[in-house]
C-alpha cells in the first residue's frame, strides 16, 4: 500500500522535495503528515478546481470589471467607477426587484421543502408501483418551463381556469392570479414549487438511503413510535441532505428567472419582476451591461452573506457522521 502512495502525492509535493533532497526511503517516513495531506488535497481538488477557476471564476472577475464601466456590449467600455452601484442603490427599482425575489423565496421554499420531504418519506415506504410514483413525481422537474407555464396559465386562468372553477364552486374568492399584480408572484410560486417537488424528493430520498436500517430496528425495539423515529432518527440523520437542499434552494431562489420570464414576463406592470429578470433586461434588451453586472454583484453579495450564515450555523443542527 505504501508503495503506491508516494507516487500519487509526488506530483504536487515534488518541488518541495526537490529543494530539500533527503535520502530515499527516509524521505517517505519523514515527510510531515500535514504536507502529505496537502498533496492529497491538491490531487483531489485540482480536477474540479482548474475548470471552475478558468470557466467560472475568471468570468466572474471580468464581470466585476465590467460593472465599473458603461458598456452596451458592442462599442468599447467607458470607465465610470462606482457610478453603476451608486445608481442602483438609489434606484427604487432595485429595492422592488429584491423585494419580489425575497417574496418568491419566502413562499416557495417552505412549500417545496415540506412537500418534497413528505413525498420522500411516503415514497420511501413499501408501496406497490413505488418506482412508477417516484418517476411520476419527478417528471415535472424534466418538463420544460415553456410547457409548464402554459399549463399553469390555463389552470390559473382567472375566468375559466380549473382552480377558479373549483374555488367558485366552494364559494371562495376567485383571485386574478397571474393577471393581477398582487397575485402574479403567488402564481409563479405555486407553479415553481409544483415543478421542483421532485427535485427535493430525489435528494432527500438519496439521503434517506444512507440512514442505516439498524438504527430503526434499534429504536423499534426501544418502543419508539413512528413519529418519534421520524423526529429522532430520520430528521437528524437526514440533516446533511436537508442542509444541501436549504443552501441550494436559497441560492437558486435568489436567482429565480426562467419561470417568471415565461409565466408573467415580470408583469403585470413589473409586479413580479425579479433581480435576474432585471439583469437580463438590462443586458440583452437595454444594452446596459455595466449596470447589469453591478446588479449581479449586489445579488452575489446578498447570496454570499446568506450562505455564509448558513455554513456558520450548520454546527447547531447538521449532524455529520
Amino acid at each position: 500500500m505504501n508503495a503506491t502512495q508516494p507516487t500519487l502525492t509526488r506530483g504536487s509535493v515534488d518541488d518541495r522535495d526537490g529543494a530539500r533532497p533527503v535520502a530515499p526511503g527516509a524521505s517517505r517516513r519523514r515527510r510531515s503528515p500535514r504536507l502529505r495531506t496537502l498533496g492529497w488535497a491538491l490531487f483531489f481538488l485540482l480536477p474540479s478546481g482548474v475548470p471552475l477557476l478558468l470557466f467560472t471564476f475568471v468570468p466572474m472577475v471580468s464581470s466585476a470589471w465590467v460593472s465599473l464601466h458603461e458598456w452596451n456590449l458592442i462599442s468599447s467600455m467607458t470607465w465610470v467607477g462606482l457610478d453603476n452601484y451608486a445608481h442602483l442603490l438609489t434606484d427604487p427599482n432595485t429595492r422592488e426587484v429584491f423585494g419580489h425575489t425575497l417574496l418568491y423565496i419566502l413562499g416557495y421554499f417552505p412549500l417545496v421543502y415540506a412537500g418534497g420531504l413528505g413525498l420522500a418519506v411516503v415514497l420511501n415506504r413499501r408501496l406497490a408501483a413505488r418506482g412508477f410514483f417516484r418517476a411520476a413525481y419527478f417528471l415535472p422537474v424534466v418538463t420544460s418551463w415553456v410547457v409548464v407555464a402554459l399549463v399553469w396559465q390555463w389552470l390559473l386562468n382567472p375566468s375559466n381556469g380549473l382552480v377558479n372553477q373549483i374555488l367558485g364552486f366552494l364559494n371562495l374568492p376567485e383571485p386574478g392570479w397571474w393577471t393581477d399584480p398582487s397575485w402574479a408572484m403567488p402564481s409563479v410560486i405555486l407553479a415553481s414549487a409544483w415543478k421542483d417537488l421532485g427535485f427535493v424528493m430525489v435528494i432527500l430520498l438519496a439521503g434517506l438511503q444512507t440512514i442505516p436500517q439498524e438504527l430503526y430496528e434499534a429504536s423499534r425495539i426501544d418502543g419508539a413510535s413512528a413519529w418519534k423515529q421520524f423526529r429522532h432518527v430520520t430528521l437528524p440523520l437526514l440533516s446533511p441532505s436537508t442542509f444541501f437542499v436549504v443552501v441550494i434552494s436559497l441560492i437558486n431562489g435568489f436567482q429565480v428567472f426562467d419561470q417568471v420570464y415565461v409565466m408573467t414576463g415580470g408583469g403585470p406592470s413589473g409586479a413580479s419582476q425579479v433581480v435576474v429578470g432585471q439583469i437580463y433586461e438590462l443586458t440583452f434588451r437595454y444594452g446596459r451591461a455595466g449596470e447589469a453586472s453591478a446588479l449581479s454583484w449586489l445579488l452575489f453579495l446578498v447570496i454570499l452573506a446568506v450562505t455564509a450564515v448558513q455554513i456558520r450555523g450548520q454546527r447547531r443542527w447538521v449532524h455529520y457522521a
Binding site: 467560472t56 475568471v58 466572474m60 471580468s62 456590449l73 441550494i248 428567472f257 439583469i279 445579488l299 452575489f300
Partner: peptide
C-alpha cells in the same frame, strides 16, 4: 472552509452575467 465557500461562490453569480465575459474569453 474558505476554498469550499469559494467553490460555492461559483453558483452565486447569475449565468446571464457570466456568459458575456466567458464568450469574450
Amino acid at each position: 472552509n474558505v476554498i469550499f465557500t469559494l467553490y460555492l461562490a461559483t453558483l452565486m453569480v447569475p449565468l446571464q452575467v457570466l456568459v458575456v465575459p466567458l464568450f469574450i474569453q
